[in-house]
Amino acid sequence: MFTANKKKSILYRLLMMVLSVSSVILLLAAYRAVALANPLLLPSFDQIGERFVKLFTTPIKGVPLTAHVIASLRRVLIAMGFAWVLGILFGFSIGWSRTLNAIFGTIFELFRPIPPIAWIPIVIMWFGVGEFPKELIVFIGSVIPVVVNTRSGVMYVEKQYTDVARAFGASRFQMLKEVVLPSAIPSIFAGLRTSVSTGWTVVLAAEMLAADRGVGALVMRGWMGNDMALVLISISVIAIIGAILSFTLIKLEKVVCPWMH
């Protein structure tokens, strides 16, 4: 019975793989059909290929595609680094201490529902259009999910675990280090995953409004120049990098939390 099950599961997985590959092929075919029927709506694959090569031979704003990608990634990674460290520390503090939660929790709840993009005018007015304001906006966007998830992970640690620690005489610090922190990790990771996608979304929005370099700037340039191929290339790059970022995080989670399935 065991082998039969296994056999079935291999077949099943193969079928699922075929299904997902053919759905992508179908999507591309549909694209091609639309592009052929109305070239004004969508550029053909040939045009996109040509445009892609041109991105390297005649760079936009003096730099090739890779430099734009690096500019965007740099902003996201710097901002997210700060967001993770400060967000986890802050979330932990207000989750652990009722006093700190009373002082800062309410203020945080007031700021939480504001979409990060809404801060762009204020941030530009205060700090201009350099690197820092863009990083600040990404920071604002990506710190919120980290704080929310860290706080709830710390607050809602299961009573049965803290009971065990208390019964065996753990000090408050030992409780924090041995029980609360590790049991909050899965929840913290959920926050980090959300922060990556939020951060990546926000940086593009910020770049579309005011930037010389970055993938968001390329989208904007394509739009303004009626260069649909450039827009589509930029969108594909955004999708690929977003996927790589979340894949990396899932791998990292497996290393940090070996007890999760």
Partner: peptide, 29 residues
């Protein structure tokens, strides 16, 4: 300190190995 407990819900720490779970009370002490 002279009493110890086996819990109704198993209450093992899911994020610790068997060894780490058994060691935990000793670590606290």
């Amino acid at each position: 300190e002279e009493m110890s407990m086996v819990f109704q819900l198993l209450s093992l720490m899911p994020f610790k190995t068997v060894m780490e779970n058994v060691e935990l009370p000793l670590k606290f002490r």
